[in-house]
């Protein structure tokens, strides 16, 4: 399959189950809501080293939030529910509670409950106050700045982690431009996050290493500087590869984001230096979710040759 001169390789992205939750963080201004969101989802690129994967799903207008202030919607994913229950209160306590003017609310009503203020309310040292509204309980924690309002808990969802595609381009600059275009389009898709810096990964990994104790190591088959020294997946004209990793609340959300992202890359096309789209997989043995690039792009934009 060729779209606008870009080869869509006959392969698939292999993704795995994750458990996720959504937090709604509000603040007095959009800027402070973003600061809280970025801090809370910082150092959360990969479960391998960070314990979770997190990102800002989107920004929220005042009319979309529980308290009528600007906010952000955050998605946090972990490998299992037990891990999620640990990382969410930690990030809440260190990054949202501490951030001026913020409040935090549940973004998912269903599923197993992930503790929010249920855990961190003890910071208030006995001065915490709860207020039950309908079936929901909110906590008010006195802090030096005033009062921190937080939902008691939030719901969770069985999500998908590790959806991905690779952009093979002639140069580093062209790969980056294509990746930026993909990210700009993909962040509009609801229910997904791109957990890596700016949504882009330059150091895609393969499973395992020659060194004991390392679970992952550089994806040498896609390293241009190793072409010829290892079994390479890169044709001669490819000078740089960037990866986009997608986590989402459902298979459909990740598939939609993949399609939107590849479409944006293909719009740049061969003229913009994009050679091919590939995807990372492990032979189909690691994850149950397979995003077949050509099937996803079957009715996509661009020409099919």
């Amino acid at each position: 399959m060729i779209l606008n001169g870009v080869e869509i390789r006959d392969t698939f992205a292999e993704a795995f189950p994750m458990v996720g939750t959504r937090l709604i963080v509000t603040a007095d201004t959009p800027e402070w809501a973003l600061i809280a969101g970025r801090t809370t989802t910082g150092f959360a690129t990969s479960v391998i080293g960070c314990g979770c994967e997190a990102g800002i799903e989107r920004t929220l207008a005042p009319e979309e939030t529980p308290d009528g202030r600007p906010g952000v919607s955050l998605l946090i994913f972990a490998m299992d529910f037990g891990s999620l229950k640990k990382v969410v209160p930690l990030r809440l306590g260190q990054c949202v509670l501490t951030c001026p003017t913020t409040a935090c609310y549940a973004g998912i009503d269903t599923g197993k409950r992930v503790p929010l203020a249920k855990t961190i309310r003890y910071f208030a040292d006995g001065h915490q106050i709860s207020k039950k509204i309908g079936d929901k309980r909110f906590w008010r924690l006195p802090v030096m700045e005033g009062e921190f309002v937080c939902d008691e808990d939030t719901g969770s969802v069985d999500g998908v982690g590790g959806g991905n595609f690779l952009i093979l381009a002639r140069s580093r600059g062209q790969a980056l431009k294509a990746a930026e275009a993909a990210v700009a389009a993909m962040v509009q898709v609801p229910g997904i996050i791109l957990p890596f810096p700016g949504g882009v990964v330059r150091s895609g990994s393969k499973v395992g290493s020659k060194y004991k104790g390392l679970f992952a190591s550089t994806n040498d088959a896609y390293c241009p500087t190793l072409r010829g020294t290892v079994p390479s997946q890169l044709p001669e004209e490819v000078g740089s590869v960037l990866e986009i990793v997608i986590d989402g609340v459902s298979f459909e959300a990740v598939a939609q984001a993949t399609k939107v992202g590849i479409t944006a890359v293909c719009a740049i096309g061969a003229e913009g230096g994009v050679v091919a789209i590939d995807a990372g997989n492990y032979g189909g043995n690691l994850g149950p979710f397979h995003f077949k690039l050509r099937e996803i792009m079957q009715d996509g934009a661009g020409e099919t040759a």
Partner: peptide
Amino acid sequence: THELVMLPLLARRV
């Protein structure tokens, strides 16, 4: 007298 986030939250939800 204090500025309380709980006030608009209650006004909107109750």
